[in-house]
Design a binder for these strands. Structure first.
Length: 586
RNA sequence: GGCCCCGUAGCUCAGUGGAUAGAGCAUCAGAUUCCUAAUCUGAGGGCCGCAGGUUCAAAUCCUGCCGGGGUCGCCA
């Protein structure tokens, strides 16, 4: 049950009725008519903008339309008042029973309350993390990983058919470096003194176990072979080991993917998907030989003007055409990425979402150009950029550097502050704004820490239901979570406000999903928790407002039903964000 | 120089084209014999970077400027 959609349907019916009666001219476009939450609750429960949207086309004064609409809606038994205000807003106040039905709906739908079918099962691909398989995940990967995971959750909750995907960059020069680094550790494992790790190779200790495993698998066999023979073996061995490690790191954050797509697989097994994708673009006349200008403001001594194979991305709004071949004749990273996205399109995805780090921001226009060209504009690609995370420890900036040995891995962060705080803090900010992450504050258990604030609201709700169960062991609501109580006993304004906030949950989910903005959910949960804490504390001064009334079974039942519904919304919201909803916090 | 992101309270940031622009922190003043005070109530604090434009309505959309950050063929 979505009260906003419900009331909007009634408004549209009323408008059509006015059309038939001739009060409004026929043929008006109602597409922009919306029922929303008024910013100021004093204005009413729901507000409708119909009069202002339609005034011009109808050639009528906004207030006249609003009055006519109000006249019809006042006949609705659920509408207590319909007032025209300001430039032509129609403010509606609904009777209490209308809101009690929301509580019933929440408990009836349980974890599914707030889920939606706005996504219409559209095939949607969310690509996130895609860290190079050359080492453990570091803290810089963390934000995009959490963001992508929460967005995928959110989209499937809103009815999209979501595939979570990881693109493994296992084809570039960096995996050859990985192989050579692992080979060195292999020699070390066989007893050789390898001394300092030469610069240009990966020095991390995390390759030691890989070297040992290589020694166990191959014995001394590889030592005799030339590099061209051992490199492919060691490379694939090391990549598998790195991916296993990365998957473990991600699991520590409760992140998983449905598909791991190998870049190398684009050109192995007798196929060449890169050539195929380029051919597809060529057929559209978008591939040509040309020269690129040397970028300005870039003092590159080694710049060499040469003719190369280019993709005409400027035809789709990019500021430069883009190279597809390196000087040695191999494909650029971009060429492979085109083929990868071509593959996604051929697998039937119509909504593509990529989560990028801030350093890839300049890559966006060319990727969008490629998808637009390959799909003939039938698919959309949204690229969500996650800005940098600045680390602090007790207010002091905390730099990470591999050389100084303060290389902060994602695992370190999760181990130190815990999964829930990491996830929530990463989401409690718009993705395209930089984020300050202070280890001290994130672990602090106080109201200054939004994670604990929201979780505490959930634990509080759980706690009061436990206590109610002791006071009234046979009370159905606290056992079954069903709305059998007489909710008309919920007459306090604070109680009704809580219901109205909970009623906004489905609308919020749809908006956040369509905008690809999971942070909206984090802020909503904070707001709902705040309202709950506020109402709760009123019980300190006014004992008659407390949930459990030992001498009044009926009112305890009604309030427990409300608390159970709030607990459900908090729990559902936290679950979508991938954050735990604890039953108790002590 | 091109492109992208950001500019809202002292600080960190919300704000789905709508009514008097919000929250947290910090500051100040209060609340606990009580269902979890890990909480709550109140006060002060604003040319929403600047200037135009679109609109019945702009912090929000468009253009230009100013300021901060990022990025710019053969790395991935």
């Amino acid at each position: 049950m979505n009260v906003f959609a419900e009331v909007e349907a009634r408004v549209l019916a009323a408008l059509r009725g006015l059309e038939e009666k001739g009060t409004l001219p026929a043929g008006l476009d109602f597409a922009n008519v919306a029922v929303e939450q008024p910013r100021d609750p004093a204005h009413g429960d729901l507000a409708c903008n119909a009069a202002m949207v339609l005034a011009k086309a109808a050639k009528m004064k906004p207030r006249d339309i609003a009055e006519a609409l109000a006249g019809v809606l006042r006949l609705d038994p659920d509408v207590v008042s319909a007032e025209v205000a300001g430039p032509g807003f129609l403010n509606l106040r609904m009777r209490d029973a209308f809101w009690y039905d929301v509580v019933g709906a929440i408990l009836a739908k349980g974890p599914l309350y707030g889920s939606s079918d706005v996504g219409r099962a559209a095939r949607t691909n969310v690509e996130y993390v895609s860290a190079n398989p050359t080492g453990p995940m570091h803290v810089g990967h963390c934000r995009g990983a959490v963001f992508g995971d929460a967005l995928a959750h959110l989209l499937s909750f809103a009815g999209y058919d979501v595939t979570r995907e990881y693109y493994i960059n296992d084809a570039g020069g960096q995996v050859d470096v990985l192989a050579r680094s692992a080979f060195l550790r292999y020699r070390e494992a066989l007893g050789e003194d390898i001394g300092e790790i030469p610069s240009g190779l990966y020095p991390g200790d995390y390759l030691k176990p890989v070297g040992a495993a290589l020694a166990e698998t191959y014995g001394r066999d590889l030592l005799q072979k030339p590099e061209e023979d051992w490199l492919p073996l060691v490379r694939s061995f090391a990549i598998d080991a790195m991916m296993a490690m990365i998957k473990e790191d991600l699991a520590a954050l409760n992140i998983s993917h449905d598909v791991f797509f190998s870049e190398r697989s684009l050109t192995t097994g007798g196929k060449n998907q890169i050539a195929a994708a380029i051919a597809a673009l060529d057929a559209k006349g978008l591939i040509f030989k040309g020269r690129l200008e040397k970028p300005k403001g870039h003092d590159d001594e080694e710049w060499e003007d040469r003719e190369q194979t280019l993709f005409r991305s400027t035809a789709f709004g990019d500021d430069n055409d883009r190279a597809l071949m390196k000087s040695d004749g191999s494909y650029t990273y971009f060429a492979a990425d085109i083929a990868y996205h071509y593959d996604k399109l051929q697998r039937g995805f119509r909504h593509l979402i990529n989560v990028f780090g801030a350093d890839h921001i300049g890559y966006i226009p060319r990727m969008k150009a490629a998808v637009a060209a390959l799909s003939d504009g039938k698919a959309d690609l949204d690229i969500k950029v996650c800005q940098l995370v600045k680390l602090f420890k007790g207010g002091e900036p905390f730099k990470m550097s591999k050389r100084a040995g303060t290389f902060v891995t994602l695992r370190d962060v999760v181990d130190e502050v815990g999964r829930d705080p990491v996830r929530f803090m990463m989401l409690y900010r718009k993705n395209d704004a930089p984020l300050d992450f202070d280890f001290a504050k994130v672990t602090e258990q106080s109201k200054d820490n939004p994670v604990f604030y929201v979780q505490y609201a959930h634990a509080r709700a759980a706690s009061v239901l436990r206590n109610a169960r002791e006071a009234f062991p046979d009370l159905e609501v606290v056992h079954e979570g069903t709305a059998t109580a007489d909710l008309s006993l919920l007459t306090d304004g604070g109680e009704l406000d809580l219901i109205k906030k909970a009623a906004f949950f489905p609308t919020l989910i749809e908006g956040a999903a369509q905008a690809h903005e999971p942070h909206r959910l984090a802020f909503y949960l904070y707001d709902l928790a705040s309202a709950f804490h506020g109402h709760w504390t009123r019980g300190n001064d006014l004992p008659q407002l407390r949930v459990i009334q030992p001498n009044d079974r009926a009112i305890t039942a009604a309030r427990c039903t409300l608390v159970a519904s709030l607990k459900q919304v908090l729990s559902s919201g936290l679950t979508v964000l991938g954050v735990g909803a604890p039953e108790a916090m002590r």
